[in-house]
Simulated scan of single mutants.
Amino acid sequence: MTVRVMLISPAADAPAHEARFGDDGPLGAAGMRRTRAAAGSLPAAGQVLTAPSARCAASAAALGLAAARPEPALRDLDPGRWRGLPLAEVGAAEPQALAAWLTDPGAAPHGGESVQDVVARTGAWLDGLEDGRVLAVTTAAVIRAALVHALDLPPQTFWRLDVLPLSVTELSGRGGRWNLRCGVPLPRGSADTASPAET
């Protein structure tokens, strides 16, 4: 059995956007324009999925993946009671708890998921896939988790894996062995004409 999984990250928000835990705001105008420019560039797939978030669903729609269905296993890492809070605020109020979460894969001081939890959840989904091609629009956390699981990396590497906005990370597997094709940018079309102020 061979599975080819293409994990697609949504476009980034504008740089001025404040980082918040569990942020699921809409794509900005520039991000939506870039996403639409890449529509039609993805291959056909037997399964087309999206994380159950507004941002991922909007990205899938803008990519022309009308058949995408929500997959609960692809949901973002649950930040528990930190949801909606700015990263800077949590860092100022709970520096030790935030440091523990970022350095200990088993820590969940916010009462949500630990890194180990999201790796286990994503790994179970990945290993349960059947033969064929799968396209999935999902978050950077899930893509990192898939890589940690598929390549049998130490969980401590989770935060050191950078996932580029609007990129494809490809995994292919046979008999439980996974191979990686590192983040491939989606093609940029003529609609991607944002000025530096919009990016």
Rank of each mutant, 00 (worst) to 15 (best):
V3R: 08
V3W: 00
V5L: 15
M6Q: 14
L7A: 02
I8A: 00
A14P: 10
E18V: 15
A19H: 13
F21N: 03
D23K: 02
D23Q: 06
A30T: 01
A30I: 00
A30Y: 00
A30G: 07
G31M: 05
G31Q: 04
M32G: 15
M32V: 11
R34I: 04
R36C: 11
G40E: 01
S41F: 06
S41C: 06
L42W: 05
P43Q: 07
A44K: 08
A44E: 14
A45C: 11
A45H: 07
A45N: 08
V48G: 01
T50A: 14
A57D: 05
A58E: 15
S59E: 13
S59N: 10
A60Y: 03
A62H: 04
A62F: 03
G64W: 04
L65P: 02
A67H: 06
A67S: 15
A68E: 03
R69P: 04
R69W: 07
R69Q: 15
E71N: 09
E71F: 05
E71Y: 02
P72C: 05
P72F: 07
P72M: 04
P72H: 08
A73L: 08
L74A: 07
D78P: 03
G80A: 08
R81W: 09
R81F: 11
R83S: 14
L85S: 14
P86A: 05
P86L: 01
L87E: 10
A88P: 13
A88T: 15
E89G: 12
V90N: 08
G91D: 08
G91P: 05
P95C: 11
Q96I: 10
A99C: 08
A99Q: 12
A99K: 05
A100E: 14
L102M: 15
T103Y: 06
D104T: 13
P105I: 10
G106M: 08
G106I: 06
A108G: 07
A108T: 01
P109S: 07
G112L: 11
E113I: 00
E113R: 01
E113H: 05
D117E: 05
R121T: 00
G123N: 04
L129M: 09
E130H: 13
V134R: 04
L135G: 02
V137F: 07
A141F: 00
A141D: 15
V142M: 02
A145P: 01
A145D: 01
L147E: 03
L147P: 00
H149K: 09
P155F: 09
Q156Y: 10
T157W: 11
F158C: 01
W159A: 09
D162I: 07
V163F: 01
V163N: 02
P165S: 06
S167I: 06
S167C: 13
V168W: 06
T169D: 05
S172M: 13
G173S: 13
R174K: 14
W178D: 05
W178E: 07
N179I: 10
L180A: 08
R181E: 14
G183P: 06
V184P: 00
L186N: 01
P187T: 00
G189H: 02
S190D: 13
A191E: 15
A191Y: 04
A191H: 09
A191N: 11
T193A: 14
A194E: 09
P196Q: 01
A197G: 14
